[in-house]
Structure formats: C-alpha cells, structure tokens
Design a protein around this nucleic acid. Structure first.
Lengths: 336, 336
DNA sequence: TTGAAAGCGCTACCAC
DNA sequence: GTGGTAGCGCTTTCAA
C-alpha cells in the first residue's frame, strides 16, 4: 500500500473538498475552522495517513518548533540529565529537542553552533566548558534566545545560569577539614575552562598550599583512573581527593579499589554533580548536588518568554545553589 | 553588528556579483564553479558571515542530510553507545543525527516515528523493545531506509540487525552451571517484548524448571534494586541471578550490597550488554558483550547504500554474535 | 469561515 | 561556467 510520493497538504485538501489553507488551519489553529469542516479534514488526514512535512512547515513558518541543546559529553550522565530536563520541559510545551555533542572540542562547538543557528530553533541551551569569545559573539548575533550554563557573561539575547561553585566548594572543604583532613588533591578535566576552572580556583582559594592540583584528565571513567594514579604517586599522599565531577570520581574509586587502597579509610573521595550513579557505586559517593531539573526548567522558561524580558538588553544571570550530599566515600583519615 | 534579518543566498550573490545559483554551487558542488568565482563567493560568505538555512536547503533538495535514531532509554548506557556509534559513522559521511527517546512507551514510539518520517531523514535506526506491527507497517510505508535492532522481521526497505541472544544465553548458562550453580533467577524489564523476551525465553529453554523468572522491573538502576529484592525474597534463594542487562544488574548489585549479601560468594550476578560501567563497579560485572560499534557501522552502511541492494524486496537480516566477559561478580556458589 | 496566492530560502534544471 | 527560474510543501496575509 505504500504510496510512491509522499502526500501533501493539497492531496488532503482535495480529498476533503477544501482548500489547502483550510487544511493547514484545521491542523494548526483548529479554532479558526468550523467544526464540521475540521471533521472532514481530519477524516481525510486519517484516511490518507497524511504526515505534514516538517521542513516545509518550518520554512514557511519562519520558525522551527524545536530547541537545540549543546553539551560537551553525553557519556557523562550529568549532561544527559541536562538534556533530559530540557527535553521534559520542551515536550510539555510542544517543542522538540535537537542535541549535539561537542566532545569538549572547541572547533566542533563552533561547527555545532553554526549548524544549530542554521536550523533556526526557538532557543538554544549551551552546556559546555569549551566556550570561547568568538562563539559567544556568534550566538549573540544569531539572535536566537540562548541560555548558557556557567560560561562567560550574559549578552543581549543570552541568559546565563551559573552554579555557585564557590559555595559548593566551600561546603565540601569545610566538611573535609572538620573530618580532620590536612592534605588534599584535585583531579579534574579541562580545568582551564568554565565551571571546572572555577571549581579548581575556588578549591585553591580555600586550601592554598594544602591543595595538590593533579593532572588534567579526560572526562571519562578512565580519566578518573588516571587521575587516581597520579594522586597515588604523590608523596606525601593526600588523604582526600576532590574530583571535578562524579564521572571522574567513580573512575578514580575504581583505580583505588584495584590498587587496594581503602576508601574512605586510606583516602576519601568526593565528586561534584550528584549523578544518579553516585548512589549505586560502592562505596556510594559523597558529592555536591547540582539540581539539573531546575536548570532545564529555568532554561526553557527563559527561552519561551523572551517577551517577558523588559528589554532584551538586560543581561540575565540566574544563580543556582548546590548542596553537599554525604555518603560513604568520605570519612576521617585513618591514622597509621 | 547583529543584522536584523538573516542573510540569504541572494545577499551573498549580490555581494559577490554572481547569481544565487552560483553561490549554491560554490557551496555544495565546488567543482562546478571556476576557482576564481568560488574564491569571490567564499569571501563574500566570510565577510557577511552567511549561514545557510537548513530548512530551506532540505526542503528544496527533497532530502535531509540527517539520520534519525530512535531508542528506548538513553539513560541506559547501552542505548547511548548505539547512538554514539551511529553518530560517529554518520558524521564521517557528512550526516547529522537526530535522536529520540521513547521511554519504552509504544504510544510515544508511534509519535516519534511520525515525527521522524516528517523530517524525511536519509535513514532511520530504531533500537527499541516496544515495537508493534502497526509501527513496522508505518516504517515500511515511510519508504525511508530503516534499520531496526532485534525486533520483528525485516521488510522491503527495512533491514534487521539481530543479536544471537540464544547463543549468548547458552554461553552464560553453561558457564554458570560449570561453576556449580543449580538455582537461577532472572530479572528483566519489558520481558514481553523484543530482545528481552528472547533472552528470557532462551534462558527458560536452557534452564527449564531451574529458572525463577523474577518480577518485570523498570530499566533503571532502581529497577535493578527492586529485582534483587524480589530474588532475595525467594525460598530457596537462587545462587545466581541473570539480569536482562547491565544497567539493571548494577542496580541489583547495589541492593545486594546494602542487604549485606556477598557477591559472588552468596550470589553471582551477571548482566548483558557489557556497558563501560560494568568494569567500573565493584565487583566488576560479568556480562555478555554486544558489539555496539559494529552495530552502528552496519546500520549506517545499510542506510547509505540502499542502491547496493539488488532488490529492495530482499529482506535483510544481519546477525551479531555476543561473547561472554567474565569479571568479578560471578563465581562458584559458596556452601554453607 | 474559507479560498487564492504570495512567498519562506534554497536547489536543480534548462538555457546561454 | 554561469544565470534565470520553477518549484519543494507549507503558512499566512488579504479578500470574499
């Protein structure tokens, strides 16, 4: 029964005995069409199994009912959560979501931004570390409502959601010190950029000379293992290591396990983000929670109400507060 | 510097002193344009920071340079790997990827298939469990090269990649029996559908009465915990539990840990898929490897060479062989 | 409430 | 090699 050529609005119109315009209205703005007519149109749509052509619809409408999400690394569940939270909100409002992954590659980010802009989405949510000025500029010129997470400063059509990293770090270090820790290590990825840079700097500010900044590793489980190896090679060894995120922390814990280093007995490990997996590994990971669901919600709100803004020149910054979640991977250092 | 209205081909054409057609060619088929002309066009493109409009391009071209990927649950790293492997291959060939998540909801799957078809992608890769006949039919009628994973039978424009679940299951059960296990439990999700159904059935065939089929849980870490609780409630308890996938197995192991049940001493746990995380949890998970990278590769191959098929009526089926990966979560049952 | 028709920005065919 | 131009399938004034 497969038809050789895809059906168009015109086919439906003919079948229903109305004009294409009416079919379009029946489909998009039913209130503009008399009930009886709408009925006939809908029947024809069913009968013919008509499926509107998105490309044409978006082009003619000038807009596209979708929002773009750009993240650095979907394999890190943190980014996946961001995607899901945006998706959830977007769907509620009848939008589709287009995701793109950059793999922390600035060139790929630039390409992806171009591609997104070329699709003219209703909005763009950018959660990456590798943002550079030129790209911000491009986003500004793109004139599409954009929400960026924790990078750079807001611009005309750009809102910034920022996590109070400093506060988060302060809470962890205070906690760790209260446990009696004196030597700290840090394992992060891309610590020159964005939020990881801020986490590192906040840590340095808190701990001063007591912090040994470890190797800059990949944002992967394997990266975490590499980071842990670097920490283990230190003399004296830190008694607590802070990881740039949970993804890395979980990798680090595996390495410690394999090397026979007891966590938290010989070494405490804390992460950042509070991804779901943090509760499921052993020992369960102590971490700093970042509320992803509200990030998605706020991002979509900001995208769907650009008119809500008194003046688009208002540079908006939304601050999110993280909170400490204590589990099993941290404890007092064991004297030996 | 932001321009109020987006630039069009015509603007570039004017700036470069050529026709729109030439600009289009310079951009898409450079070999058709004299080097000098191309040069001028490119300069104009740079100068004006022109970005082609995808919607228009796709519409005019009749095709869209993208492939759709539909999966059941991106939070399960198995599906994410599938996505990544398709994405990798797609990018290599200059295609973009559109992902959609169904959350195992058949209605959502139907909606997503419609949406995909409406975008007229170059191909569609469907990796879900909840496929139903009506949807297969829709896909067939969609007349877009489609590759489905482990569900239903191939059709005209539809290829099927099937994992030899039976073989995988046979290998695990043989291994477990050789260890001395006599009582087995099974924890799966959506075991009425697709590959999970086949895994369960293969298991039942292998083990007969020795298998206790546990509750059908969610495909989530929490689902795994629930499944483990169900197993623990059994009397006599199984000494080995087979999980429908690693995602669930990892959740199950957490529950066992919390309940103080030693793995593998008191209970062996094995998964299916061999997701990366399986190596990073403790104890590292014994599982059955499914080669995702080759699945993505084969899917894209099939999509990009529909002409390669002698007749599109050839129902194609590709069989993938899984293999056992023994790690730490399985061992001989401890006598007590 | 409905229809006619002018585009949306680009591609691709047909001339030159 | 390059330009002119007719659509791609839909939305959206403008009239009726």
């Amino acid at each position: 029964m497969a038809q050789s050529e895809a059906l168009t609005l015109a086919d439906v119109a003919k079948a229903a005995g109305v004009s294409p315009a009416t079919v379009s209205r029946a489909l998009n703005e039913p209130s503009l069409v008399k009930a009886a007519t709408r009925q006939r149109v809908m029947e024809a749509v069913e009968e013919l199994r008509y499926r509107p052509n998105r490309m044409a619809r978006d082009l003619a409408g000038g807009r596209s009912r979708s929002v773009g999400v750009i993240v650095s690394n979907l394999a890190n569940p943190f980014f996946l959560d961001i995607f899901h939270s945006v998706e959830y909100e977007a769907k509620r409002h009848g939008y589709e979501v287009l995701v793109e992954n950059t793999g922390y590659d600035p060139r790929r980010l630039a390409a992806v931004i171009d591609a997104m802009l070329g699709r003219a989405p209703a909005g763009i949510v950018v959660v990456v570390s590798e943002m550079e000025d030129a790209m911000m500029q491009e986003l500004v010129e793109g004139e599409i409502p954009t929400v960026i997470y924790d990078v750079g400063s807001p611009g005309p059509n750009i809102a910034n959601i920022r996590v109070d990293e400093e506060q988060g770090i302060k809470t962890v270090t205070r906690y760790l010190k209260s446990l009696g820790h004196k030597r700290f290590g840090f394992v992060g990825h891309h610590t020159q950029y964005g939020s990881l840079r801020r986490r590192r700097e906040a840590l340095e500010a808190q701990l001063g000379k007591k912090l040994t900044v470890g190797a800059d590793v990949e944002d992967s489980l394997e990266g975490g293992r590499a980071g842990a190896r670097a920490m283990l090679a230190l003399d004296p060894r830190p008694t607590a290591i802070l990881c740039g995120n949970d993804h890395i922390a979980i990798g680090a814990m595996r390495e410690l396990r394999v090397r026979g280093v007891d966590v938290p007995g010989e070494m405490s490990v804390v992460g950042f983000d509070n991804i779901l997996w943090a509760e499921y590994v052993h020992p369960a990971l102590t971490t700093v929670n970042i509320p992803r669901p509200s990030i998605g919600r706020m991002a979509m709100e900001r995208i769907l109400t650009p008119e809500g803004t008194p003046s688009s020149a208002t540079a908006e910054e939304i601050l999110v507060q993280p909170d400490l979640v204590i589990r099993e991977s941290s404890g007092p250092p064991k004297k030996k």
